[in-house]
Design a protein around this nucleic acid. Structure first.
Lengths: 354, 354
DNA sequence: CTACAGTGTGGGAGCGCTCCCACAGCTGGG
DNA sequence: CCCAGCTGTGGGAGCGCTCCCACACTGTAG
């Protein structure tokens, strides 16, 4: 314990040592020799302050290590300077896992510049859903991000009627009134199927997600469109209804093989479904990609580790998070601005499975 | 718009229709025919209230749909009723991804019973680290959870000196003064290596994580201990230093094969390293598990999808999150209670790679 | 009958801000 | 010369709570 030993104490340079009470606006004002109002104006960036006063205040703030008390500010402005990221828990498990952390990472990156706080709210049952309603009604956040939506999810409706600024990842349907950001699911699917056709597949099947989700619908739509553009008739027997999960992919793939043993390509609406499908195909003695080419969706971590490594459609998830945050901040600051929609491009990552 | 059309409006049953301003304590008091103090006592569960008054207040609260204003409460109590989950971003990428969501899921589950809010703070560079310091010093949270720690991470030291209740996932070293929760890394590693020995391996190598992390050290320690217990000398040539990543695993595995071509088992301190190692082994013409048996750590999603599916050590991550939250709440409510440590058991999930 | 604990209660003070009104000082036009 | 009209400024009021003091109103002991 030498006197020069550095201690992580660097935050009260002015104060004479131990952690005293936090300085208030009034103390800053006293030190700067101005009134409370002037200090407040400086902090909030008002132009109506003389250069001299502004400098005095800034020095005082630095000297005291002043940080505004958020609660006091919230009490009078009824802004909270915080937004909620709501995750319907059921979805988290379905989506490829990195999705979740990447969205958060993007949102957080965008928020880092502001002094907004990010509140995380997982909703896993009706009770928690009710709590969330009460929470939102009590105006405890300035805005809401929703990570994934089912067609019949009541949450977006609630947000709409409460008129809370909000942005969804994905949408409920074509005419989603709330702002949302999503990847070009249809385009990605179309790109994948075209890739299969180009490499010579003539019997291209698909494994879908749960069709009460717009993402699943959109990916199926892209599949269908690519086939039709290439002059193939849409054949329902080539469509395997599944649920984004590995086990669902296995089951649907088996049925598909029974119905259409001659199929030579499969576009899967998620990587884990594709992984399941690949297991089934291999068990059935099909070589990948020679007998059957397989493409997944998400470009998640499993895509790199299947055997062979999987060709997959990548969506810019972190960018989606960033965009969501940006839209939300806009909506919060310019109340009543029109809702906005953003579609981000997807990309085909070609590996060895197709 | 029929008059009976249901609107999601159920939260102001007493109010005569449109969203009016939120009711205050005072209005509740007026309606219940009591004073402000009595209402406050009822809300905060004080015993010094007559049954009659309590009932009147509860009715008034229900009728008005009253929800206390958090900011006002915070202003006077200087409790914030929120805790921060801090994620040093660099780590997130290293750890197998589900780790992150599972910890959050556990924490959130535990918090659901309380009215604590969960704040998420990602720290990815020095600037954000500074902001966090200011944030914590300004007492904007009642407690802090830290998701993963390096030996030289300054954050735990800061938390210690600010005396903020905090719980770490993992620890810096043997004598970690802060509360922490971690999996039995050493035990899991030992279990894995014993499994390899039991199946007949005689030359068991290991791939380590970065040794400035205690987890990596502990897993290496478990490896060493199992070998010594079985009467094998510790052989440095069988230890490949890596960094938890897939590429790191590949590089270290190649070196290991050069040094000790006769090795017949590898314990890897993470699944993704094991996946990288398996690629290298296969490329070198080794059959898994017949020529070389491989075990990973984390039992993450990749473990199920490698070829062959990987035997791996599972840690109870969600349970870790839950426990962290529980310890933190205790520490917040009983200020100055002794720091606590919790170690949770790991489990060997046997698949086909060993 | 007075004294005196012990309950339950009302309401003032005050947490640290922002908002806004009043006012001082300084132009410049009539 | 006065009176607008600008800046820039100080400080009162008040946001919605909790804390705590003072004050009934009981009941029991002296």
């Amino acid at each position: 314990m030498s006197p020069t030993a550095q201690r992580p104490d660097a935050l009260h340079p002015g104060a004479g040592g131990r952690a005293t009470a936090r300085p208030t606006l009034e103390e800053v004002a006293a030190l700067a020799g101005v009134g409370r109002g002037t200090v407040s104006r400086v902090i909030n960036g008002s132009p109506r302050v003389s250069a001299k006063a502004r400098e005095a205040v800034q020095n005082a703030i630095a000297e005291l290590g002043y940080v505004p008390n958020r609660a006091a500010r919230t009490l009078v402005t009824s802004r909270t300077d915080s937004i909620a990221l709501v995750v319907p828990e059921a979805e988290t498990r379905l989506f490829s896992e990195p999705y979740f952390s990447d969205i958060i990472s993007g949102v957080s990156a965008e928020l880092a510049e502001t002094d907004m706080q990010l509140l995380l709210i997982l909703v896993r049952n009706q009770r928690e859903r009710d709590r969330l309603s009460a929470y939102l009604t009590a105006q405890r956040v300035d805005g809401v991000l929703v990570v994934s939506v089912h067609r019949d999810d009541p949450l977006p409706g609630l947000l709409e009627s409460l008129e809370i600024p909000s942005v969804l990842a994905g949408r409920r349907g074509d005419l989603e009134p709330l702002s949302y950001v999503h990847a070009d699911n249809a385009g990605g699917a179309r790109m994948a199927v075209r890739h299969l056709l180009r490499r010579g597949c003539t019997q291209v099947a698909t494994l879908t997600g749960p069709l009460d989700m717009e993402v699943a619908q959109a990916r199926l739509g892209g599949y269908r469109r690519a086939l039709e553009e290439a002059g193939h008739a849409y054949d329902e027997d080539l469509v395997g209804l599944a649920d984004f999960t590995e086990e669902g992919g296995r089951v649907a793939m088996r049925e598909l093989l029974d119905r259409r043993p001659e199929l030579d390509g499969v576009f899967c609406a998620s990587d884990v479904m594709a992984a399941g499908a690949m297991q089934v195909l291999r068990a059935a003695g099909r070589r990948i990609p020679d007998d059957v080419a397989v493409i997944g969706f998400d470009d998640s971590i499993v895509a790199r580790h299947t055997d062979p490594p999987m060709t997959s459609v990548r969506q810019p998830i972190e960018e989606m998070g960033r965009t969501m945050a940006r839209l939300l901040l806009d909506e919060i600051h310019e109340r009543g601005r029109a809702r906005r929609q953003v579609v981000l491009a997807t990309e085909l990552i070609v590996r060895d499975s197709a």
